[in-house]
Design a protein around this nucleic acid. Structure first.
Lengths: 199, 199
DNA sequence: CTCACATTTGAGTGAATGCTCAAATAATCG
DNA sequence: CGATTATTTGAGCATTCACTCAAATGTGAG
C-alpha cells in the first residue's frame, strides 16, 4: 500500500495550534511554523495546503477540544449551576497548562481578523456562537431540572456567561495580580450560583 | 522661519489610528498607511520615525481620547452610578461613529501582541490599567458621596466594570443580533445601578 | 528675485514573506 | 532484489515587507 506517514499529523497540528494561539495569525510566519512543526515548507503545504488552511485546522482543533473539555467537566457534576460556576473559577487560576493564563483563541481570532482574512473570521464567529449555544443548553438543563426558576431565559444567561468568560480570560492574558483575577472569577462564579437562590 | 507643514499631523494621526484600530498592528502594511495618510514613505518616516512609533502614537491618541470622552460623559451627570450605567448602555448601540460597534483598541492590542513586539504590549497594559484606575476613581467617588455603602470596594468594582465593558465591546465587534447586544448592555447597566440599592 | 534650507518625494534597498517543484528518499509490492 | 509510488526535501520563486536617501520642491528671509 502507501508509505506510512513519517510525520505525526496530530502532533504537528498541536504545535501549530499552540503557536497560532500564542502569536496570532498575522504575526506567525512560515519560518516559525517550520521550526515548530519540524517540517520543511514543501511538507507543510503537502499536508495542510496553505497557511490559512492550517490556521483553520488549528482553530477547529481548538474549538473541538474546548467544547469536549467543557462537556467532560459538566458531565460529572452534582449540579449544573455549580459546575458552570466552577468552570468560571478555573479561569481564575493562571498556573498550569493552557488554557489557563491565556485568552480564548477564538476571541483572539475574532479581534485580529477582518473580512479580508477570508474564511477565518467567519469560522471564528461560528465557533463562538456554537460555544454560546453550548452554554445555553446547560442553562436550559438547569431550568428544566428546577435549579433555575421556570421563567429563566437560557439564551440571555448564556450570553452573559460567555461575556464573563471572555473578559475573565482577557484579564488572565494580561498576567497582572493573580489574587485580583481569582477574586474576579469568584465574584462571577457566585453570581451564577445565586441564580439558583431566587436571584 | 521654517516652512509650514503641508500635511496635517492631527489628521494623519487620526487616519493612522483608525486604520490600526480596524486592522491591527501586524496586518497593517506601510502601503496601507501610505494610502490612508496620503503620504509617501519618506514623509511618514520623517514625521513618525517608524511603524512601531506611529502605532504607539496612535494608541496613545486612542487612550487619551477615550479617557477624555469618559470624563466628559461623567462630568455632567446627576449620579455617578447612573452615569457609569449609561456608559455601559452606550456600548449596546452599534450604530453611529466609532467607538460604537468596535472592540477596544487597547484590548485588541493586548491580544495580538507578545513580548517580542517591543514596547507596544507594555504600553497597552499601562493604558488598560490607567482606565481601570479611572473607573476605580468614580466608584470611590460614589462611595464617598453615599451612593454606595461605605464598605464597597472601588478597586474590585472597577475591575468587574472594566471586564463588563471589555466583553460588551467584543460582542459589539461581532456585529450579531443588535437586540441581544442591547439586552446584554442593559443587563450590565442595571447591575451597576442596583449596587446603589443595597445590592 | 535669489539664496538658504526645511520638507516631500518615490524609486530603490536588503530582508522576509508565502509558496512551488524538480529531485532525492523511503516504504511496499511482485 | 528491483520496480513503483507516496512522501519529504530545500533551494529558490515572485512578491511584499519596513525602510532609506539623493534629488526635487516649496517656503520665508534678505
Amino acid at each position: 500500500m502507501t508509505r506510512a506517514q513519517p510525520y505525526d499529523r496530530e502532533k504537528a497540528l498541536d504545535a501549530a495550534q499552540d503557536l497560532f494561539w500564542r502569536k496570532g495569525y498575522h504575526a506567525t510566519s512560515l519560518k516559525d511554523l517550520e521550526a515548530a512543526l519540524a517540517m520543511k515548507p514543501g511538507s507543510i503545504y503537502a499536508a495542510f495546503k496553505s497557511k490559512e488552511a492550517l490556521y483553520l485546522a488549528s482553530l477547529e482543533r481548538y474549538f473541538l477540544g474546548s467544547r469536549q473539555a467543557l462537556r467532560d467537566q459538566m458531565a460529572g457534576a452534582a449540579t449544573v449551576l455549580g459546575a458552570l460556576a466552577d468552570h468560571l473559577r478555573s479561569y481564575g487560576d493562571t498556573t498550569g497548562a493552557p488554557p489557563h493564563g491565556r485568552a480564548c483563541m477564538i476571541v483572539k481570532t475574532l479581534l485580529d481578523t477582518t473580512a479580508d482574512d477570508g474564511a477565518i473570521s467567519d469560522r471564528a464567529q461560528i465557533y463562538f456562537e456554537a460555544l454560546r449555544d453550548e452554554f445555553a443548553g446547560f442553562f436550559r438543563q438547569a431550568r428544566d431540572n428546577g435549579e433555575l426558576p421556570p421563567d429563566a431565559n437560557p439564551d440571555r444567561l448564556a450570553r452573559r456567561y460567555q461575556a464573563n468568560i471572555t473578559a475573565l480570560r482577557v484579564e488572565a492574558h494580561l498576567g497582572g495580580d493573580p489574587a485580583g483575577l481569582k477574586d474576579l472569577a469568584e465574584n462571577m462564579a457566585q453570581e451564577v450560583e445565586e441564580l439558583g437562590n431566587g436571584g
